[in-house]
Design a protein around this nucleic acid. Structure first.
Length: 591
RNA sequence: CGGGGCGUAGCGCAGUCCGGUUUAGCGCACCGCGUUUGGGACGCGGGGGUCGGCGGUUCAAAUCCGCCCGCCCCGACCA
């Protein structure tokens, strides 16, 4: 490609809306342009990189038995109504009506369509296992798109779907994806970890997320440096420190004026925060058939812990959760700041599982200015549910080995879900097993965001001058720069011939043939970040050939004219080898 | 949805408080001519704006007031 004809141009200054590195560089280098919040165009350079990423994905999917298909972006609402997600999912789903008034859905994912296809195509256990995938546009109307390509509303996802006769088969395909995903990201040069994750609205049994660790990430991960336990904080468990055993004492009311927070209370009574019980009030939206109802939830945790809303949502099977307003709290008979689990009505009480083992806590008295000492679960109050609802914090003890865990931020570039039979049952996707019995197909679903992957690669590979792209993802392998002074036709001629010869040899070349000063050309080459730069100029020709510089190295060297093609090919092979060496077998771990 | 910020040429900005010599300006980018060519060149000459939109106040609005829209950041949210 000639830069004089390239559709996109580089920007000298960073657009004001871009804050994070990958967004700034992808804009400045002319990879992407924004149309609206969370909606982007991908210009030729980005398109080529995405195609490379997608082809890596295709190869790895095909290698584990995947068959590429292409499913629609527009779905009739009925299939989403059948699985219930039409009702469960709120404004995130794009809905519209076609010309005859039928409700339609913009694809956010394709479990429904897959199950519908399976109903028609799969009838026998002899056909299973199967795996299909496609790479296609998704619309998810996220309330707050941000950070360039990291979090967008319209995006391209590779989503694959495994189909099995039983859960053992699902496990095999799940593990195959687990390894394939590592291969894909490693081939893109992206370091990732797999963490156990929330199954969320997908439902299902087990899920992992593939995370690129970065401070700009929006997920918090709990990572144990002792044994390697790793989980999204939404599901991370931890060893809760036990309190010393005590016999239950008599409840005793104590005056605690103006002590509305746990910290104040603990200091006032001169006790550790772990000797208090904390009340958190929430309003949960609980699905009931095609409708929902609101449920007041009273969550009780020990004072030294924080509520994990994801765990609570899962524990009570809520669709949504929000903090309760003060008047709602008063309406159920509680006193904000002095709330007690004792004696409330029409309230779902959920108690963290460490509470029954934490004797003689200080809790609110449901009376302004007073708390109760020696409150004991079981004797003084009962819960509707006792379950782990506490959020793991940086420094908490690993559930497996007890070592300290670190909290780190990450960006989710892929996920894998064991769905089970939720969608196949709802859609009637059944097959006959060897006994002639009708059974729902066991499904898994697996996603990778290709645009987000590109953004993470940009986030990982850059320096103060621009992108430094891995050869497997770079839109071109070689950036050919020609510097021509007045009357210098030799450099132009050599560069033109080299441009032709390199392409004939199968090398992908971006040729900067523009009438620009050397500074502009070098700076643009650095900004775009192709792995190899070749410079043809009077200076290089006098030295005997063409200058070669790797983007990831500071020094350059002159290659003799007749050696250029083989040297460039060797250089590309060496870069590719560096990437290939990252592709290694990984141990599957459930957490 | 709550809080904050911003909206003037393709990009970056000044002008807005305090309305009127500004014909709306500067840098970059763009077009023409000439010079220049190893790290974001120079001279001369040009083109490009419903000042986010609508309404209001006024003799007069980029500037004051109201409503709306859009974008960014923090939070809530997130398959």
């Amino acid at each position: 490609m000639r830069m004089s004809k390239l559709f996109s141009r580089t920007l000298r200054e960073t657009p004001a809306e871009a804050e994070i590195t990958s967004h700034q560089l992808l804009l400045r280098a002319g990879f992407i342009r924004q149309l609206a919040a969370g909606i982007f165009s991908y210009l030729p350079l980005a398109r080529r990189s995405l195609t490379k990423i997608e082809n890596i994905i295709r190869q790895e999917m095909d290698a584990i038995g995947g068959q590429e298909v292409s499913m629609p972006v527009v779905h009739p609402a009925e299939i989403w109504q059948k699985t219930g997600r039409w009702y469960e999912i709120d404004a995130e789903m794009g809905r519209f009506q076609d010309r005859s008034g039928r409700d339609m859905v913009l694809a956010m994912t394709h479990e429904e369509v897959v199950a519908d296809l399976v109903r028609g195509e799969v009838h026998s256990y002899r056909q299973l296992p199967l795996m299909i995938y496609h790479i296609q546009t998704k619309w998810r109307d996220d309330p707050r798109p941000r950070a360039g390509l990291i979090r967008v509303r319209e995006f391209t996802m590779k989503d694959s779907y495994s189909l099995d006769a039983d859960f053992d088969g699902l496990d095999v395909q799940y593990r195959a994806h687990y390894q394939a995903y590592f291969n894909i990201f490693h081939r893109c040069g992206l370091p990732v970890i797999a963490v156990k994750s929330d199954v969320g609205m997908m439902g299902g049994k087990l899920a992992h997320e593939f995370m690129y660790l970065a401070p700009v990430g929006e997920d918090t991960l709990m990572l144990c440096e002792g044994c390697g336990y790793s989980a999204n904080r939404q599901v991370a468990v931890f060893r809760k420190p036990l309190l010393p055993h005590e016999e239950p004492l008599l409840v005793e009311k104590v005056s605690t004026p103006e002590m509305k927070t746990i910290a104040d209370l603990a200091e006032f009574l001169n006790i550790p925060e772990s000797k208090t019980a904390k009340a958190v009030f929430l309003i949960a939206t609980i699905p009931e058939g095609e409708d929902t109802r609101e449920q007041f939830v009273f969550a009780v945790l020990r004072g030294d812990m924080e509520l994990n809303e994801s765990k609570l949502v899962n524990a009570i099977k809520a669709q949504a959760l929000r903090p309760a307003m003060e008047d709602e709290i008063i309406a159920v008979g509680a006193v904000p700041g002095y709330a007690s689990p004792l004696g409330l009505e029409n309230v779902l009480v959920v108690v963290d599982d460490i509470i029954p083992d934490s004797p003689n806590l200080v809790a609110g008295a449901n009376q302004a200015g007073y708390h109760l000492r020696n409150v004991n679960y079981g004797r003084d109050y009962q819960a509707d549910i006792v379950v782990d609802i506490a959020a793991a914090q940086d420094g908490d003890a690993c559930p497996k080995c007890g070592a300290k865990m670190k909290a780190q931020r990450g960006i989710e570039v892929g996920n894998i879900f064991k769905l089970g039979t939720r969608y196949s049952e709802a859609m009637g996707a059944e097959f006959l097993d060897a006994d002639g019995e009708s059974k729902p197909v066991v499904m898994g679903s697996y996603g990778i965001g290709s645009g987000r992957t590109l953004a993470c690669v940009a986030e990982e590979y850059n320096d103060e001058n621009g992108l430094v792209l891995p050869v497997s993802v770079a839109p071109y392998q070689v950036h050919l720069v020609v510097l021509t002074g007045k009357g210098d036709e030799e450099s132009s001629d050599v560069a033109e011939r080299l441009y032709f010869d390199l392409q004939a040899a199968g090398v992908e070349v971006l040729f900067d043939d523009r009438q620009e000063s050397p500074g502009v050309k070098f700076n643009d080459a650095d900004l775009i970040g192709l792995p190899i730069r070749l410079t043809v100029s009077q200076r290089s020709l006098k030295a005997g050939g063409v200058e070669l510089k790797r983007r990831d190295q500071a020094d350059s060297r002159v290659i003799l004219s007749d050696r250029i093609i083989p040297v460039v090919k060797d250089e590309i092979a060496a870069l590719q080898k560096e990437i290939d060496q990252r592709v290694i077998a990984v141990d599957f771990r459930e957490d």
